[in-house]
Nucleic acid binder design. Structure first.
Lengths: 110, 110
DNA sequence: GGTTCATATACCTGTCAAGGCATATTCGAT
DNA sequence: ATCGAATATGCCTTGACAGGTATATGAACC
């Protein structure tokens, strides 16, 4: 299965996911909100489906898509080590970086 | 400037960022840790630099790269609306989605 | 000044993905 | 059965991008 990182690198797919985050949608609804040809929407939905990011329910002729947020946790987890960088303010960050890779400046031994 | 989403869609670049998250590195250090030719490392670093995700300090013949976490906040912010989906447990989520797009199942009026 | 180490750039090439267009499928209504 | 609505798929073209190889820059040291 393709990495979620690759999937959300496409802006239209991000928009689709954001729309589905507020409410499930049929293809036609997505089409009109995205102002994009239906075939493109369907193709993006296919990619999202195969990556496990959305799922479809059949309802008459319509397919109603809904979000499957699971795979996005991968992104969230990858981001984790970076969060502390923007929770501290900048000068604290720089002090931190200085401590990080300790270059022996002067003799510290004695 | 290219979106950070596109930048981190490349696995090697994610690894570079993760390495720099723990400590700043020279190009040579990255090269040996990534087991990847130097030219490739330099090219990825260029992309990261132009996206504002890293910056370089010149030290003799070496360039020491460090993380610039700012642009990653964009990713973190985009992810925000999805977090509630995996903080609640699954059945609660489904009840939520059902409430979301209220389809009139039976006559509910009277 | 030439040599070597450290890094960057130029060029080429294969691959892969998105968009456009035409067409196929599937279901519902008449 | 036929038609139309809703959605999916196939084919094609084009552009972007990563990897490889060769080469250029630039600093340090003799």
């Amino acid at each position: 299965m393709v990495s979620s990182f690759a999937i959300i690198s496409e802006p239209n797919r991000r928009t689709i996911l954001s729309l589905l985050a507020s409410s499930e949608c049929s293809v036609g609804e997505l089409e009109s909100r995205l102002r994009m040809p239906q075939t493109s929407v369907s193709k993006h939905l296919r990619v999202l489906r195969e990556a496990g990011l959305v799922e479809a329910r059949i309802e008459a002729q319509k397919r109603v898509y809904r979000l499957r947020p699971g795979p996005l946790k991968e992104i969230d987890a990858w981001l984790e080590p970076f969060r502390r960088f923007w929770t501290a303010h900048v000068d604290a960050l720089e002090r931190h970086l200085d401590r990080m890779d300790p270059v022996p400046k002067k003799g510290k031994k004695h």
